[in-house]
């Protein structure tokens, strides 16, 4: 369904991704964990070409691109099949919640305004913002902004949604509402790749957990395998550092 093969990426002389391959099945929720600088965000950004991979292949659905000779048209196609939810929300600040969701439907999918509007309203209601359609981002809380971001990502009905630390910029009391929305979407069977530090969320929602460090995938498996019975020493070290003792022994 989504196949990343031999993805490599360097920033100058610093190699951030080393020959990474990862397959994600339809409807699967894959959570990527790892210390900062491990390349997890870069990998995610490579999937919709916000970072240009140095080499490797990306396949999404029936679309396939070789990164070493991707043309502009390939990149646009790839981006239309994927969607990203950003750590800093990145809403269009001069557009209302409704306009933010409608934008891609109007401009990219070229839907008639009435149709785009109807679908966008439905999506905003789904993320619990039916009452905030005409508010600008500056008048929404972080949690509300991120939920608009999720509705915007859903609008194009992408084959996969990429979440880049979607709750890291939120006040602690707002994290729950956003995770709840992501959980609900996951239950609908939408394919997701999520970079997050929310261990509880990873344990509940992920079908598979991937642990990255130093630009490679160190270990992957079900949440139970990775969290309870990590095989690699680096994984164990990482989990010890971020998981409170009490949770770790469950």
């Amino acid at each position: 369904m989504i196949a990343l093969s031999n993805i490599s990426k360097s920033f100058g002389r610093n190699q951030v991704l080393q020959d990474i391959s990862l397959n994600v099945n339809r409807g699967e929720v894959v959570v990527i964990l790892g210390p900062s600088g491990s390349g997890k965000t870069t990998l995610l950004r490579c999937v919709n070409y916000l970072e240009k991979p140095g080499s490797g292949q990306i396949a999404v659905g029936d679309f396939h691109v070789d990164c070493s000779r991707a043309r502009r048209g390939d990149i646009l196609q790839l981006r239309r099949k994927t969607a990203m939810v950003f750590q800093q929300y990145n809403l269009f600040r001069h557009k209302t919640a409704l306009e933010n969701v409608m934008e891609a439907l109007l401009v990219v999918k070229k839907l008639p305004a009435a149709e785009a509007r109807k679908r966008s309203i439905a999506l905003l209601e789904k993320v619990g913002l039916g009452a905030k359609l005409n508010e600008y981002p500056s008048r929404l809380s972080g949690g509300q902004q991120q939920r608009v971001g999720i509705a915007r990502a859903l609008a194009l009905e992408p084959e996969v949604i990429l979440f880049d630390e979607p709750t890291s910029a939120l006040d602690p009391e707002l994290v729950g509402e956003v995770l709840e929305v992501i959980r609900a979407i996951a239950r609908e069977g939408i394919t997701m790749i999520v970079v997050t530090h929310e261990m509880g969320f990873a344990r509940d929602v992920a079908n598979r957990v991937v642990f990255m460090d130093g630009g490679v995938i160190v270990e992957e498996g079900t949440p139970d395998e990775v969290f309870q019975h990590p095989k690699e020493e680096r994984t164990k070290q990482f989990l010890r550092r971020i998981t409170p003792e009490a949770n770790y022994s469950i």
């Binding site: 919709n48 070409y49 916000l50 646009l76 981006r79 239309r80 994927t82 969607a83 990203m84 950003f86 800093q88 990145n90 809403l91 269009f92 600040r93 001069h94 934008e103 891609a104 401009v107 990219v108 971001g149 915007r152 990502a153 609008a155 194009l156």
Partner: peptide, 29 residues
Amino acid sequence: DRGQVEAAQSVGMTTFQSLRRIVFPQALA
């Protein structure tokens, strides 16, 4: 901010579309 341009690109807008619809209106303001 650069993030909004990335958001426009991430939903498949072309460079020209993101300039015209996202960047210029805010740059003007």
